[in-house]
Structures are given as C-alpha cells and as structure tokens.
Amino acid sequence: MLDPTLLPWWAWPLLLFAVTFLLGIVAVIGGIGGGVLFVPIVAGFLPFHLDFVRGAGLLLALSGALSAGPSLLRGGLASLRLAMPLALAGSIGAIAGAFLGLAMPTRVLQLSLGIVVLAIAALMWATRHAGETLARTPDRWAAALGLSGRYPEASQGTIVAWTVHRTPAGLAAFAVIGVIGGMFGLGAGWANVPALTLLMGLPLKLAVGTSGLTMSIMNTSAAWVYLNEGALLPILHVPSILGVMLGARFGVRMLKRIEAQTARYIIIAVLLIAGGRSLLQGFGI
C-alpha cells in the first residue's frame, strides 16, 4: 500500500478522481459496472483501507444504478416486475455479505477478493462470445409472478416479447450475487447480466436494464450496513462517484470509436492485474 505522506492530503482525492474517471470510461465501453474495477484497483494501489473502499464501491454502484434507473424504465429497457423478486433475494444476500465482509480479517478478505476478481475475469473470458439463448415458455414460478412482457428493440425497430425460465435458480443466483456484492462492495452488474441472460433466458438489452434496477435495491441494502458500521469516508466516495460518472459520460462518446470486445479485453487484463495484486496483499507480499 502507498504511503499517504507521499502526497499532500488534497492530492489523494484528485488522484482518486483521475483514476475513477478512467475506470468510468473503460467500464461503460465494456458494459460492466464501475464497482467491480474500482474496489480491487483502489484497494490494491492506493492507501485507503479495504473497509472504506468497499463502502465507496457500493455507493458508487448505487449512485450509477439510481441515476440510470429512471431512463431505463421510461425507455422500456428494464422490467420492474422481474427486478422486484430478484432484488428481494439479492438484498437479503447483500446484507448478509456486508456483515460477513466487515467481520472478516483484512488478509482473508484480500485473498478472497483476489480469487473473486480473477474468477470474474475468467467468467468474462468464458462468456465473451456467448450468444442469446432466449426463454420460450415461462416456468411455473415465472407464470405465477407474471414475468413476461415486451420491450422495444430499437436496432430492429420492433417490439420483442420476452419471458424467463429457471426462476428458482435465478433467485438463488441473485442471493449468491448479493452476498458477494455486499461482501466486497463490487456492485453486481458483472454477474446479474450473465444470470439473467444465460440462466433465465432474458434478451441481453433487457437484462442490462433490469440488472441496473436490481442493483439500485441490492446495493441500497448493503450501503445501509456500511453506513451504520461507520465504514464510509466522504473523501473517498464523493471523488470516486464524480470520477466514474463523468468518465462514463465520456465513455459513451467513445463508444462509437472503440469496439466493445476490445474494451472487454482491456477490462479482463485490468481485472487480472488487480486480482493478482489483491492475492499478493492477502499473502502479505
């Protein structure tokens, strides 16, 4: 960890802003949340303790999800009806994960974070060419909950019907994602989208929007725990939120110039470095 006396105090929030600005650009081009990059990189390379970095990571993901939620809903690109039961399972998991994370020794947490981040990189690599396997008929749970509808597919100028299957498995997956997200402050977009598309058979575009909506609820639950435990430092989370949000806006403009697949490879490389660094920290190196 860097010595905080290397720079004057005011330089650290500025550095944090610069780092998170870059993360925001990469995250939006790669189509993932900022939290998954933020926590391992900031905890690995800047002088802030992992406890506060995780709290900031959750607030970062929460702010992004809350900001995007209204336009996703208004555009018909997120299903509130689908998000609600999944968010309920996810937020129970997130609270459990937050308590678990705050109770674990730092070394164990760093080691676990390293393993999780490397696993996320592997998941991104494995699913980089995954196509859509859409659900055709709803399972019993989906039928009972009315989990089907239509969304506008702007690229084709059509309205597409959707439903989901394997709902119980989806609920279980969201509970587990919640635990991991709450424990490490990673947000949940990195896992929500594959769970919605590959497991539940939702179209990708709707999965991205619905994932954002579930994140706003899951991260809220865990953020309350971090606030009540005193694990939030404004000097850490405010510059980070500003950096990622401005970076994301800049990233949207760059979307046309950089291929999503290229950004995905950059993210995988960054995750490998950050995950490796976290593992080394866990081993006390």
């Binding site: 105090w9 002088p47 303790h49 406890d51 005193g230």
Partner: peptide
Amino acid sequence: PPTELPRYWGLPVGQYL
C-alpha cells in the same frame, strides 16, 4: 479535518472508529 484523514484512512474500520 481532511488534513488529518491520511492518518486514519488506511486503518480497518474498527481501529478508525
């Protein structure tokens, strides 16, 4: 004060409190 924070932000939350 923010000038004092660098002494504390590297501590685990329990020690910080």
